[in-house]
Design a protein around this nucleic acid. Structure first.
Length: 410
DNA sequence: TCTGGGGTCCTAGGACCC
DNA sequence: TCTGGGGTCCTAGGACCC
């Protein structure tokens, strides 16, 4: 049985003026498909992109059990005739750009999820473009003809449903879940299909005797909250009932930029670690500058010999994308962590910069006490007198106050 | 399954503020 | 000077996704 609150929310959903309609478009075995497109001799054969680790496997390779994230050795053990190809990121970026052009021509409301998948809001397009299945079919045809790549498309009344449908439709298929058929479609699927249920959560549910999406849907939300925590528990209960009010978010910005490198355990001393830190910091700050972004929180990411993860982070007073500033903070963090690292052994080191803002504003966070407050007010007034009322914005006086001042053109 | 590299979001305790 | 409620930010860890 559905809980009363669920029924009520669903009723509210139905009373909306028009039902939202979403597509989820997902390129099949993306990198591998680009290679097969550009190298006809690879078509119909088991191929994988990547050497040490498999980044993508063609469906012919998947038939042997080859999967993303496997080592090359594991993959060749499963499929001795596997052909591996070095990745060509520029080719994939270019193909992605053209596929997203096709998405944009389908609807103005496109939310990219990664290099090879996106949500497309097609609500209200029916009158112009026809039924959902027609829109999806046209999109698939266009991507195949223009870019030469197979695209799978799922459709339904929520983003979540569209995403599940495209996964079920793969490879090279289309599946539109009809209005009213949502819960029947979802119920028999394994819980792992729920967005946000990975191995850990799946095992927790399985041990409680819950194996299908339908069983999650009928569980009391309180039970799921007790088992998985408030956010995850409520989230998966709502998804299982196809309650997903999230709209398409056009133009989402990245919230962090990072880079990392792995190496065999025991091969890196402190100076070797410093070289890697410089390399990854340089890569990250370069990307920040290219994107005209600055970040305020520097995190070093560690992976120990036992493959457990660790982080150390520090938030700067002023956001930056300067290599020297980020490296200085990262070096301090690594120094502080080094005793721990020496003891546990290291196999990966990386850095991430988060708290990103556009590089068009000067943002300062000033720690101060209430006794300084009138001086801050005076400073803000002076800047506004000189540069205009919009020159300074001040965050609410809670937590750590910030003032933000746009850089002036001259 | 002995495991790469790029990300997102959530949790929880402590510090700090009103 | 003490106490409580409500709230944000920082930090570290973890699950999950492609």
């Amino acid at each position: 049985m559905m809980s009363a609150s669920v029924r009520e929310e669903q009723h509210r959903g139905w009373s909306q003026p028009s039902t939202p309609r979403f597509l989820h478009a997902d390129l099949d075995a993306f990198y591998a498909s680009v290679e097969q497109r550009d190298h006809p001799e690879l078509r119909g054969k088991p191929i994988a992109v990547g050497g040490g680790v498999i980044l993508a496997a063609s469906y012919e390779a998947r038939a042997f059990g080859v999967k993303t994230a496997m080592t090359g050795r594991q993959a060749r053990a499963l499929c001795p005739q596997l052909i591996t190809v070095d990745p060509r990121m520029e080719a994939y970026t270019e193909a992605s750009r053209r596929v997203f052009d096709a998405f944009a021509d389908c609807s103005p409301n496109v939310e990219g999820l990664s290099i090879d998948e996106a949500f497309i809001d097609i609500s209200g397009l029916g009158r112009i473009a026809g039924p959902d299945a027609t829109i999806a079919g046209n999109l698939r045809r266009r991507v195949l003809e223009d870019v030469g790549l197979p695209l799978s498309v799922g459709g339904g009344s929520t983003k979540f449903l569209a995403k599940v449908a495209s996964a079920v439709a793969k490879p090279n298929g289309v599946l539109i879940v009809p209005d009213g058929g949502e819960l029947d479609f979802l119920a028999p699927l394994p819980v792992g299909r729920l967005w946000g249920v990975g191995p850990v959560t799946e095992e927790a549910l399985r041990s409680a005797g819950v194996n299908t999406v339908g069983e999650v849907a009928e569980l009391a939300p309180e039970l799921l909250v007790a088992k998985l925590g408030p956010a995850a528990g409520r989230h998966i209960h709502r998804l299982a009932n196809n309650l997903d009010p999230r709209p398409i978010e056009v133009g989402r910005r990245r919230r962090s930029i990072g880079s990392q490198r792995s190496f065999p355990v025991g091969t890196i001393d402190r100076s070797g670690a410093q070289e890697i830190l410089l390399e990854v910091t340089d890569r990250v700050t370069r990307r920040l500058r290219t994107g005209e972004r600055i970040g305020r929180t520097v995190t070093i990411r560690l992976r120990y010999a036992d493959y457990r993860a660790g982080t150390r982070s520090r938030t700067l007073i002023e956001a930056t994308n300067a290599t020297a500033a980020v490296l200085e903070t990262a070096t301090e963090l690594l120094d502080e962590a080094w005793a721990d690292v020496s003891e546990r052994g290291l196999t990966r080191l990386g850095i991430a910069v988060s708290g990103l803002t556009d590089d068009t504003a000067l943002q300062l966070t000033l720690p101060f006490t209430k006794h300084d407050r009138h001086r801050l007010d005076e400073a803000v007034d002076q800047i506004r007198d000189r540069f205009g009322l919009d020159a300074v914005t001040r965050a609410p006086l809670v937590g750590r106050p910030t003032i933000e001042m746009p850089l002036l053109p001259d």
